[in-house]
Amino acid sequence: MPMAAHEIEALIVASIPDARVEMTDLAGDGDHWAARVTSETFRGMTRLKQQRAVYAALGERMGGVLHALQLTTAVPE
């Protein structure tokens, strides 16, 4: 069963409390998502470390229950 947007967002915010998460259903099937995660926590981190932090928040769900995630990370302007 695919993960709902609010479940993905909740996992990210639980790990990165100041994160603003914007979810987009890419295929309309609830199984292929795009997420834009903006957090002050990312300031000074490389893009790779930012993305690793988000994937760590999702844990073992990535590649399992969560089939596909197009991820963009940013710091607030």
Rank of each mutant, 00 (worst) to 15 (best):
A35H: 04
I8R: 02
Y55V: 07
V75H: 01
W33S: 01
R47Y: 04
D29P: 03
R43K: 12
T24A: 13
E9H: 07
A5M: 08
Q50P: 06
E22T: 13
S15R: 14
D25G: 07
W33G: 00
I12A: 03
V54E: 03
E7S: 13
G59A: 11
A27T: 10
H6P: 10
W33Y: 07
H32R: 07
L48N: 15
A74H: 01
A10C: 08
G44E: 09
A4S: 12
L26E: 00
Q70A: 15
T24H: 05
A4F: 10
P17L: 08
I16T: 03
M1A: 15
I12P: 00
H6R: 14
D29A: 03
D18W: 06
L48M: 14
R20D: 03
A4R: 14
R36H: 05
T72C: 02
A56C: 07
F42N: 06
A27V: 05
S39I: 00
L11T: 05
V13Q: 11
A14C: 09
F42L: 07
D29I: 01
E40T: 14
R36P: 04
H32C: 04
G63E: 06
R47L: 13
E40H: 08
T72L: 09
V65N: 11
V75F: 01
E9C: 12
A14D: 12
M45I: 02
I8P: 05
A74Q: 09
R61Y: 13
D18H: 08
V37I: 10
D31C: 08
T24V: 14
A35D: 02
H6N: 13
G28Q: 09
M23K: 02
L48A: 12
G28H: 12
E9F: 05
D31E: 11
L11A: 15
G64R: 15
Q51C: 10
M45L: 14
R43P: 01
T46I: 04
A10T: 08
V75P: 04
Q51E: 13
D31K: 04
R47D: 10
A19D: 00
H6A: 11
P17D: 08
W33R: 01
S15V: 01
M3D: 08
H6G: 04
M23H: 07
Y55F: 15
